[in-house]
Design a protein around this nucleic acid. Structure first.
Lengths: 195, 195, 195, 195
DNA sequence: CATGAATGAGAGTTCATTCAT
DNA sequence: TATGAATGAACTCTCATTCAT
């Protein structure tokens, strides 16, 4: 950071403000209703500048989804790791609950990332990133007595997160078949059985 | 059907051909790349005619997703009900496997309905429809010893189908984090634990 | 014509006014400086209407060049055929001179069709068109003693018109290497030698 | 050359590489599809640098057309002058044939200079250039018995080269009305008659 | 001299929707 | 009910040109 030239800092600011403007508009007005001209207007840069940093609207969107997805997971694991738990079960449920509560508070974000909170994608993109690895370690430690094959841990994490993401989207955004708070007890019961 | 006048039959044919054309185009070229002018061209009707039957592109899409979603579930339950099983577990896994195999064979359809294979939505739309009810009865019978509260069965069905839909989309369409055949054993193991 | 419906007449008028507007703008402002929005504005139709009749700017341009090219040739042959001549040589030079005088009077058109006054192209497009055929008959009659092979007449017409077009463009538009009136005597001398 | 400073050499290299990049791109992708950003990328210089050496895209294009046009003529006359001929006719046809063969081998170049192989323009730009003058001398010597007026030689050269250029473009690039090899005999016959 | 990020006008094109027939 | 020509706002994306470094 400190080794950036003035030009590089300026570039970074431009990209950041475009990214932030896109995020703001996507969540409040929807992707479909957001034009690139809206984004640049909000970011305070010229239209052409957008194309210096992103291929098109969906390029920013993909970046946002990936970043925010991992942010959600990292925040949840950090919340979890600062606490002490008696069992893996308790710890995992706390972790899951952190995710759910975050999504409940950020309904617009949830709408945006839709059901793209995918372990597969996040893991691939951030495979050496500390927060993401800690999620893996938590499961590895918690499931160490389960006589699992190579790669099974990844699959279990994937399935659980896929489940949580899907259920949250349905219950929080669509309120279908019911709201998330009514769904939580059953969901937790099921997760307990899984592990 | 037999009580329809010629005009009514004609109207129904128009709607059907628009629907069929939309389905064909959505699956092969994607929703984004399909314009209403493409749909009417393929259906062999005039542009204005489209608006006599549908509000807009997403109106047809919603109808397609709902129809096809329930079709998938109904076909799977029918497949299942013509067989005998020793246990609910066996029966349920056969039902799930029918869904998965169907989606494997119809990747384009899976892409289209995305992760919208939602029990909540299908149940609401077809709450008195035979096939859909039979799914409910299967679970009701299978879980009768579980001391469940009113509405819990719906929630369990919802969660399981949400899980299956999500995993199928990821593994079949994106092949992320792996292909569906490698994921199946773990997925089945987890479902066994759930019930 | 008389069998056209009101709608067809209206369509034809739209296309004609787009064509006329394009011609007017191309000749006065240049192709490069004429935008489709200029054309539709001048034609008094909506932008989208342009695309109902033409693929793009160059589609109209091609049609204009072809039409005008043949118009020039047809007008010249009609001028020629209403007169009597003692020899083919006299007749041909009169025909050529008609072309040259036309181009001199219509410098903007000459600029537009550039050096595209091509016998090859016009002949192909209008191979059954009366005026174009009369040009062929004139040469056929005039060269009947020349013991020519099949197809040689076409080639001679092609070469002579190619020559006339090129020289006109250079001398009239660019005044290079001199003006057309100074070039005419030599050009005519050369054409006389050719036949 | 040898008196250039390092800076001057460097400058010349920049201009040369821009020129070469433009030529390469114009011929392979077309003028319309070549942006200045493409040229500078290929030349390996910054965008602003282009404007230090050329006014715009058409400025380079004009230079290229002029250079290449004269190159074609000079190469043909040099080919011709190293041989002995019995007559001017033979010599001229050899010269013309050299041009045609060159253009046949360099179709992309021919496409680029279009029908701009103009004696008028080349003569003006290179009026004291050895190669160009030798073309003039060849005609002067060959036509010395023709009792021509001052300036007529220039006009005859102009007309013949205009003819050759036009015919080559049509026959080689467009293959219209036929290919160049079928056109050559007639073309040569006509040129023989002209002189 | 050289750079290349930034500009922003505007080109071309699409397409949902309307409405006279 | 059915048509399809016409609309024109809205869109994406390009690119020549500038200018601070």
């Amino acid at each position: 950071m400190k080794h950036m030239s003035k030009v590089e800092i300026n570039k970074r600011q431009k990209e950041d403000s475009l990214y932030a403007a896109a995020y703001e508009l996507f969540t409040t007005q929807g992707i479909h209703n957001t034009a690139i001209s809206d984004i640049v207007k909000k970011a305070g840069v010229a239209k052409g500048t957008f194309y210096l940093y992103f291929k098109d609207k969906y390029d920013v969107l993909d970046k946002i989804i990936l970043d925010k997805s991992s942010e959600i997971l990292v925040e949840a694991i950090e919340n979890t790791n600062i606490k002490e738990f008696d069992s893996f079960e308790e710890k995992l449920l706390y972790f899951i609950d952190s995710i759910i509560e975050y999504l409940k508070e950020n309904k617009l974000l949830l709408k945006l990332i839709y059901k793209n909170l995918s372990w597969g994608v996040v893991r691939k993109a951030y495979k050496d990133y500390k927060g993401i690895n800690e999620i893996y370690y938590m499961f590895e430690e918690g499931l160490k007595d389960h006589d699992l094959k190579e790669g099974d841990i990844e699959k279990i994490i994937f399935i659980i997160l896929e489940l949580v993401g899907s259920v949250c989207y349905s219950c929080i955004v669509l309120r279908e078949p019911t709201n998330i708070d009514e769904m939580k007890p059953i969901l937790f019961e099921i997760i307990k059985k899984i592990i």
